[in-house]
Every structure is written in C-alpha cells, then in structure tokens.
Design a protein around this nucleic acid. Structure first.
Length: 433
RNA sequence: GGCAGGUUGCCCGAGUGGCCAAAGGGAGCGGACUGUAAAUCCGCCGGCUCAGCCUACGUUGGUUCGAACCCAACACCUGCCA
C-alpha cells in the first residue's frame, strides 16, 4: 500500500483535489489501513464521456494505492436527475435508465480490479432506494435534512434564482445522494466519497447525514472542473461530445481529440489523466516548452489514453492511421492494409461517375463529405488554398479527380485545412468487396 | 394596468427610404508558419446553376418606382410609475 502522504501529495500535485474535507483527517484514515471509498455515476446517456474519466481514473488511482473502491451507478438517481445550473432535465423512462445502467457499469469495470484484498465492488442505488416507501424516506431520512441548508447549495440556489425554477424532484436529488453515502457506510464501511467539484453540495449532504445518523465523520474530496485555455467547454469537439464508447466516438476521433490539445492545457491534462510518474510528466512539460511544434506531450497523452480506454491494439491502429494521413509521405505510396485501416477512421462519402465518365468536382465532394458545410464554403476553401486531394493542394475550383488519383483504384482522401479529413469511395454501389 | 424604450446575421452591436448581404467587435474558417497546438500577420466569414440571382434585419399586413429603415396590428423583452 502506498503511504497516505505520498498518495495525497500526488493527488494534490496533479491538481485533483479542488475541495476537500479535513485532509489531515483523511491522511490519518488512509494510513490506518485500506479505506473503502466511492464515486457515483448517473446514467444520463448510453455512455460516459471523457469528463467522467477524471472520476473513473481517480477511483483507479486510489485502488492502485491499496484502497477499496465502490463504483456506484445511479439506477435511482438517474431516474430523478441532478439539478443542472440552467434548466430542468427531461426525465428518462425506467427502461432507458435501466439499459444505460448496464452500459455505464460495463464501461467502468475495465478500469478497476475485481480481485485481491481490495477488490472493487459495483453497486446500484436502486437496490436500497426502490424498496423504500415515501413514509420511510420522509421520516427516516427527510427529518435529517434542513430545507434552509438544502436551498443554500449552489446547484439549488442557482436554479431558485433562475427563470427555470426547480422541481421538487430535482430539489430532492441531494437527499438521495446523501442517502447513498449513508447506505454505503452501513453496508461496506465506506468513509470517503469523491466526485466532481460540481457535486460538492451532494457530497457534503452525505457527510452531514452520516454525521447526524451515525455520529461518524466521513471524508470527501472533489476534483476540479477540467478547463480549456480558450474558454470553451472541455470534452467537446466540433462534432460533439467525446464519448468513451467506441461506437459513439471512434478511437481515431478519441486519439485526435488529445493530439489536438492546446499547448496551454496539455500539462494539466497529463497530470489529471496520465498514470505516468511526476518525473515523466515534468520531462514532457519541458519538451513541450522547448519545442512546442513537435507536440510530444500531446502525442504521449493521446497514446496513453487511447490505449487505456480502447486497448493497445486500437491504439496502434489509430496511431498508424494518423501517421499515414498526416505523415509526410505520399498517400499513394502507402501499403493497402495501412491505407484501408486509415480510411476506416474517416467520415465517408460515395462518388459516382457522371455520364461522360468524369468524377464530381472536388468542390462537390467537399460538400458531400461534410468537410465544408455548403458548396459556397467548399468553393471558398479551394480559393483560399485550404482544400487538398490526397494531401495535394487543389488550386482550381473546377478541379476533378482523375482516375490516376484513385488510391488502390478506388479511394480518394479529401482534406480541408490542416486536420479535417474524409474518404471518398468510388466503388460502384453493390460492387465493393 | 399606465408611460417610455427595444427586437438586426452564430453572439454583441451600428445602421432611420435607394450607394445594405447590411459598419465595427467577438467567435469560427483558410493561408503563411516550427509535424494536427499557440502567438502573430494576411484573407474569408447567408445560399446558389456565382461578373448574376435568391433568401434575410421579431410576425403579419400596408405606404412607396424602391423599405432593415415609414405606417398599422400582433408577439416578446427592458426601464419607470401604479
């Protein structure tokens, strides 16, 4: 077991502790032996996204230090909805939530070990919430919650002051999460809860409840909100949220997300997400400062996380694809296998010959593949010198691909700007492979 | 309920009868550039069958050769008074 000071120091150095209860008390508890701790994930979508990765990896870090994780998937809280600052959530059906519980659970499992003395346990708060009657909830739990305190919580007060207001349903959310901590304390001796800083109000609801009911002081710490230097929301790209599910965000897109991290953010991301040692991370920071254009730090981060989330094999495939697509060599020189796997990662469009045997113009293809939102934009891209066919700049607006351009006799690679790529398949419909 | 002001492109915001697809700023996009990052500079930034046409300045209708701009009604927002 890693000693407590080392563990806490490492978490602090990584910037993973944004707010916490008494850290000295937590150190003592961690030193006294393996601590059982938990973090909850609500099934609000069929997959978690990279924002949740901070929580998952924090669970993993603590387990690697010898402590015992409980990963809670909120079958009950997912039916209620955690108050968002701006708007009331739409309720999902019980079937949907149940299905998402299964998916989210399967998504978390690979990061934890279910063997050994500190084996992880998956729990679902529906198990203790569903059987409870309204009377039990109001008498046994509700009596310990002061409304004055509940409305003071940031999530609730923001909503009370907003036009959206807040439903009793969402107002009650903190009671359920507080109850979870109490229940896990009773069932598993859980004395530490982690979560995102936006959850702090909910974490403290549990601490208070345990204190009132059990007379015991438990611990909690919250990870910071991961931010981006340009002020936009972390975990989003032009094409939407970066999900952990390979079907929803391809491993290639996932890898590209990290490769494209801003220089100003990459050091912080390494600390939060990477399992590299402090020395290794500091070396990467130095390399980034010295030669930013090489972007070694981004590559290291993308490599590690793609392997962690999608596996070594996928990592190798997307790295090879990225090198092929962004490399210096001519695409025509690539071996067919590498070419095909690289193309598999890209958005795809199909092209057919016109009656006279010619292929559609590059402008047409840019619009069709979605690389440019309209034909006007595609035309502009060409006139600005930002359109490429097989990584060669297209210089005239009426340029057509020629048969000689077809890679492997069939494919075209289109690019707009530095990093937006798409594949065009020219095979006759029905004749492909 | 009364009075006053407002509603412009992704956002902020100028424009009060033709020179307005609409100033300026932000965001975004492209290029240069040191590998897909940043900074900086330059260019672009409604659509199309692109020297032209179409759509667009809250909604609907009207005045006019011509309207984002004038008039009327409606909707929503803001301020002051009750």
């Amino acid at each position: 077991m890693t000693n407590a000071s080392e563990l806490i120091d490492d978490l602090q150095w990584r910037g993973l502790i944004a707010v916490s209860t008494d850290l000295e008390a937590l150190r003592e508890a961690l030193d006294a032996g393996p601590v059982t701790y938990y973090c909850g994930f609500d099934p609000t979508a069929p997959s978690l996204h990279i924002g949740s990765l901070v929580q998952i990896l924090t669970l993993r870090r603590l387990q690697q230090a010898g402590h015992r994780p409980l990963a809670l998937v909120g079958g009950a809280t997912g039916l209620i909805g955690d108050p968002k600052p701006n708007a009331e959530r739409t309720l999902n059906s019980a079937e949907t939530v149940a299905q998402w519980v299964g998916r989210v659970r399967a998504q978390i499992e690979p990061y934890l070990s279910f063997e050994g003395d500190n084996a992880a346990v998956m729990v679902n708060n529906l198990d203790w919430t569903a059987p409870m009657s309204a009377i039990d909830l109001l008498r046994d739990i509700g009596k310990h919650f002061r409304v004055n305190k509940m409305i003071a919580k940031e999530a609730v007060s923001a909503r009370l002051n907003s036009d959206a207001g807040i439903s009793y349903t969402e107002f009650s959310y903190q009671i359920l999460q507080g109850m979870d901590f109490l229940e896990l304390y009773r069932r598993h001796g859980c004395v530490l809860q982690t979560g995102g800083s936006d959850q702090w109000g909910n974490l403290t609801a549990g601490l208070d409840l345990i204190h009132r009911v059990e007379g015991r002081t438990a611990h909690a710490f919250a990870t910071p909100l991961v931010t981006k230097a340009d002020g936009t929301k972390f975990g989003k790209t032009e094409s939407g949220t970066v999900w952990l599910d390979a079907e929803m965000t391809s491993p290639y897109a996932f890898y590209q997300f990290w490769v494209n991290a801003d220089d100003r953010d990459v050091a912080a991301y390494l600390k939060v997400f990477s399992f590299r040692t402090r020395e290794e991370i500091e070396d990467l920071e130095k390399a980034a400062a010295k030669r930013p254009a090489a972007r070694e730090a981004q590559r290291a981060l993308a490599d590690e996380l793609t392997a962690l989330v999608h596996g070594q094999q996928q990592r190798d495939a997307v790295v090879a694809a990225s090198q092929a697509l962004f490399g210096r060599g001519a695409l025509a020189d690539l071996d067919p296998a590498t070419l095909l796997s690289a193309l598999a990662e890209l958005p795809r469009a199909r092209a057919v010959r016109a009656a006279d045997g010619s292929w559609p113009t590059v402008v047409e293809l840019l619009a069709q593949t979605g690389l440019s939102p309209s034909r006007s934009a595609a035309r502009r891209a060409v006139s600005e010198g930002g359109a490429y066919l097989n990584n060669v700049r297209v210089t005239t607006e009426d340029a057509h691909p020629a048969d000689a351009d077809l890679l492997g006799g069939r494919w075209l690679v289109l690019r707009r700007g530095k990093r937006n790529l798409a594949a065009v398949d020219t095979a006759e419909p029905g004749t492909e492979d």
